[in-house]
Simulated assay, not measured.
Amino acid sequence: MAGLEKIKSQILNEANVTADAKIEEAKVQAEKMKLAAQEEGTRQAEAILKKSEAEITSYKERVKSSIDLQRRTRFLEAKQGMIAEILEKAYEKVTNLEPDEYYKLLLSVLEKHVLPQEGEIYFSVKDLENMPVGFGKEIEQTAQAKGGKLTVAGAGRDNIENGFILAYGGIEENCTIRAMFDAKRDELSDIVHRLLFV
Rank of each mutant, 00 (worst) to 15 (best):
D186V: 06
E25R: 07
A30F: 10
G41E: 10
M180D: 02
L87W: 01
V17K: 08
Q38P: 03
K51N: 08
L35N: 10
G81F: 03
L166E: 00
D190N: 10
R62H: 12
E77F: 07
E55L: 09
I121N: 01
L49V: 07
S124C: 01
M33R: 14
Y122W: 06
Y59C: 04
R194M: 14
V114Y: 00
E85S: 15
E39L: 15
A167L: 12
A84D: 13
L107M: 14
E14A: 04
G163E: 01
V28I: 15
S65M: 08
I83V: 09
S108F: 02
L12Y: 05
I160W: 02
L106M: 05
F75W: 13
P116K: 08
K60R: 13
I23R: 09
K51R: 05
K93R: 14
E14V: 03
E98L: 05
K50W: 06
F123E: 02
K79I: 09
L107E: 09
V125I: 15
T57A: 15
E24C: 07
E138Q: 15
I67W: 10
I86T: 03
R185S: 06
A167K: 06
E140C: 01
F164E: 00
E40V: 12
E24P: 01
L87M: 00
Q10R: 07
G136R: 00
P116N: 11
P116D: 07
I160C: 02
E161V: 09
N130D: 10
K93G: 08
K34W: 01
A47N: 14
A183R: 07
G154D: 03
E61P: 01
E5M: 05
K126L: 08
Q29A: 11
A54N: 10
A37F: 10
L35I: 14
A19C: 10
V109T: 07
E39D: 15
K126S: 11
N13G: 14
G81Q: 06
Q117S: 11
L106D: 00
R43N: 14
L87K: 00
D190L: 13
N13E: 13
G41D: 07
K32V: 11
S65T: 07
Y122S: 02
K50G: 11
V109Y: 05
L87C: 02
L4G: 06
L128T: 00
E85A: 15
I160V: 03
L12T: 04
R72P: 01
S189I: 05
E173Y: 06
K50F: 08
N130T: 06
D100M: 04
E138I: 09
T18M: 14
E129G: 03
F75C: 08
E31K: 12
V28G: 02
L188R: 06
E5Q: 10
S58D: 13
H193P: 02
V125S: 05
D100S: 05
Q70F: 12
L69D: 11
V198Y: 11
S66F: 10
P132S: 08
E172V: 13
I191Y: 08
R185H: 12
A19Y: 11
K51H: 04
I177D: 01
R74N: 11
